[in-house]
Amino acid sequence: MGTRGRGLRNLRAVLAPVAAGMAVMAATATVLVPALGHGVRPEAPRPVATHRAYGPGTAPASPAAARCTPASAAESLRPSPADGPAVERIKKKGQLVVGVDQNTYRWGYRDRDTGRLEGFDIDLARAIAKDILGPDAKVVFQAVPTNQRIPAVRQRTVDMVVRTMTINCARKEQVAFSTAYFQAGQQVLAPKRSTITAFDDSLRGKRVCTAAGSTGETELARRSHGARVLTAPNQLDCLVRLQLGEADAVVTDSALAAAQAAQDPTVELKGAPFTDESYGVAMNKDDPDLVRRVNKVLDDYRSGGEDSPWMRAYRKWLQADLPGISGPPEPQYGD
């Protein structure tokens, strides 16, 4: 229903940083050109306007175009089943070390009865391990806090992070991502009987909780819709505050919001996601062969239509609280 509106909003969201980037380039030019001694003021706005005509996604294959834009952020390396040095390293170790979450219901959490980690992310990590190491693959799950995801990958504490991690350009400077394996977006969660309808002016005067340092906090800082923002250390702490009456709504990404709704039948997701976030598997930038291998696993994971492993995992973990998803996001490749 709101897909067209969402698409429009996406386009706007995509264009804003492009324009900003152009402005920076133009500013750099204004500094550089006088230094070259020509003393002529370049017409800065013009290149921005012309560039905009190309639009996102149609960037030419020049080196400058390899620069990450929000539209191309989800692009990854083409899949390959070959064993490169990184895959060999993992095979030699005989185990795959995966950074995961332990606290996100239905994504990565400890099963009460078995004590084992379970969830959508965990299933995916097991599938990757099985592909690399064979049917009896040894997977070591390491609980990685949100803010430790990038350091853990960069310092090779883990081979990869599968932990509801959004792909974006800032992160792509530090780590490499697989293709997107889930499409999410920031969303509002509120009690079913609340007057809050979406991320709009119905938030006016309401106390909205979001995790400190999260995308939600950034979005609320950008446009608060008159809401009073309070932050908690973790998105799940926001549900506690909602239940205790200290907050009226929660802003977090749709996957996590759904995980919250799964734990409290009196709350629900309100409105459509108002940002676009693709989840990817994060790996070290020096492991391109591993990235290709994981993309190959993801390809297998997605294929099979209604009976693909992806759809089975979706139905098992997510459908109840995130209904209406017909399939995995399409992979995008940048090479």
Binding site: N103, D113, Q263
Partner: peptide, 20 residues
């Protein structure tokens, strides 16, 4: 008690309550 109840149901929310 809320933490305990949620925990018994296997919900991570219990841990958040206990931390609170």
């Amino acid at each position: 008690e809320t933490a305990r109840t949620n925990n018994r149901q296997g919900l991570p929310l219990g841990g958040a309550y206990l931390r609170y």
